[in-house]
Design a protein around this nucleic acid. Structure first.
Length: 292
DNA sequence: ATGTCGATATGCTATCGA
């Protein structure tokens, strides 16, 4: 009978181990000012992939060696002083795109989008975005935000046609619903909470993308008591827990089918390390079930 | 509304963007 069991059970070599691939996003508000905290968090959390926003440096000043020493490959789309995005990945990356597609009359010199195929055993296309803030409304900054959302919509639509596992993650600068802020009043005139902006976010979902946090909260046995991802430096927002949820993962249907967990690393908002102060955003980590 | 940051050059204080 020992022989029978040997034949009926799959051997360890052929049994595909279920794995969880961790895909994170974090607006770091200067990668160099934040570096000691970032390295500490990467050692602990061990994300497979992490999109960074607001790195606030040109490519040449990105601390590539520090991340390589932790086992990450780096794809960087930097800019002097403002914006700047990057993808860190334990797996090799291919098909790297810097910037969203532009129409002929679009002028956009901000570094706000980078995308790569993560060459894991089951590849994932990962887009890292830093959507314009858009304040104050009724200015060209707000118009730029709306136009950027149109361009993101078009690109997101094109990506769905590839029928891949795709994750669009980043600082969307969009508060999707009333549940995603502590009090509505102060935000009614803010570009992060305008109906047109929230409608555009819903438009991305209507294409077929799933908001990972929203989906996870519908089947999570113990929903997180915190859903905020950002607390302003000003006016004591953090000690008063006056936060908002603006850092999101949108999943293609192929990725949404694998959604296993969403974790907001709230504790990093109160941490310091080697003189480095916390970012005003915290990392959000999505776990997808994948095969080895 | 504002109790804070970070990068920069207008450069040891002010300005911008968030």
């Amino acid at each position: 009978m020992g022989v029978l069991a040997f034949f009926l059970l799959p051997s360890p070599a052929t049994l595909a181990k279920p794995l969880h691939m961790k895909l994170a996003t974090w607006n770091v508000n200067s990668v160099n000012a934040r570096l000691p905290l970032l390295l500490e968090w990467f050692r602990e959390a061990q994300p497979d992939v992490c999109g960074l926003q607001e790195i606030k440096c040109i490519d040449e000043k990105f601390p590539i060696e520090a991340f390589e020493s932790l086992g990450y490959n780096c794809a960087v789309h930097g800019q002097k002083t403002y914006n700047g995005v990057a993808i860190l990945s334990k797996f090799p990356m291919s098909d790297i795109r810097r910037g969203l597609p532009k129409a002929d009359d679009d002028q956009d010199d901000h570094s706000r989008y980078i995308e790569a195929v993560i060459e894991a055993p089951e590849p994932v296309r990962f887009g890292c975005l830093y959507l314009p803030n858009g304040n104050p409304v009724h200015t060209d900054k707000y118009a730029y935000k709306l136009r950027w959302l149109e361009r993101l919509h078009s690109h997101a639509e094109a990506l769905l046609k590839l029928e891949e596992m795709t994750v669009l993650a980043g600082d969307f600068n969009i508060i999707p619903t009333k549940a995603d802020l502590w009090k509505e009043g102060p935000w009614l005139d803010d570009a992060l909470y305008q109906p047109a902006v929230r409608r555009a976010y819903q438009g991305l979902k209507n294409l077929g993308y799933t908001d990972a946090f929203e989906a996870h909260s519908t089947f999570s046995g113990s929903p997180e008591d915190n859903r905020y991802t950002f607390w302003d430096y000003q006016a004591g927002a953090w000690p008063k827990n006056e936060g908002i949820r603006i850092d999101h993962h949108l999943l293609s249907p192929q990725a949404a089918d694998r959604l296993a967990d969403v974790v907001i690393h709230k504790d990093t908002r109160g941490r310091t390390h080697d003189e480095a102060k916390p970012s005003d955003h915290v990392p959000v980590v999505v776990e997808l079930t994948t095969k080895s």
